[in-house]
Design a protein around this nucleic acid. Sequence first.
DNA 1: CTGGATCCCAACCGATACTG
DNA 2: CAGTATCGGTTGGGATCCAG
Lengths: 134, 134
Amino acid sequence: MTASPGSASPARYDEIDPRVEALVQDLIAQVADKWTMILIEVLHDHGEQRFTRIAQKVPDISQKMLTQTLRRMERNGLVCRTVHPVVPPRVDYRLTALGESLGEAFCGVWEWAQAHLDTVETARQGFDGRKADA
Amino acid sequence: MTASPGSASPARYDEIDPRVEALVQDLIAQVADKWTMILIEVLHDHGEQRFTRIAQKVPDISQKMLTQTLRRMERNGLVCRTVHPVVPPRVDYRLTALGESLGEAFCGVWEWAQAHLDTVETARQGFDGRKADA
DNA sequence: CTGGATCCCAACCGATACTG
DNA sequence: CAGTATCGGTTGGGATCCAG
């Protein structure tokens, strides 16, 4: 906790209320991770899916991470989880409106990354080259 | 590596080229972390800053993380590092155009988080409450 | 003042095994 | 089928000390 109670924090990262700042950062941390972004994409593209189907679409994710990520997304209101009370259990996951809106917000970063892939690559080579020439 | 050589990957996360996909995700992973976002904000708001000044603005960051993050940002072409050859060393960091553009891309996510803070909070309480009622 | 090197702990994540 | 529980390896990140 960096909570300095009544003491006037001189200059925070911004002019923003530090408490809101912390909340926002926490939220971003929970929501901006690799698997969350991927799952949003999958659910956006293919609509409601059951657990195993999602796992098939994202072969590199472990079942643990899939469960964990879906749970957190559900808790944050990003996905809606529907349990069908049938004998072989069946659970469907669907993106909520909130989840969809987050997906759109991510588009900016995603597009930035795509657009500047080579620029970054050039920068990296320049940097690495500079370090190499002893 | 998830490189399945020649085997036809049936349906990837999207219709996107998996190689590009991987690169983009790697880039996002390097660039979308907590400290990078904060440092972009600080440098955007206050312009060119020297090492210690930045550390002061972000009290919760360790000196190790600050150096590490700045280095990676420099390598990725997000910041420009200027070393002044004076007797007490002085190093200035400034956001590049690329860094600025990334900051703008982040705005979307940032604004989403701010806008939906309470929505998410409500969702969380609903979720937690549902789990509690045994 | 800047930042590299080291130690060490905690959180993350994958693999496996077990339950309803 | 859809999870939970547990163990172990890997990484992230803080504290401290040291060098240029």
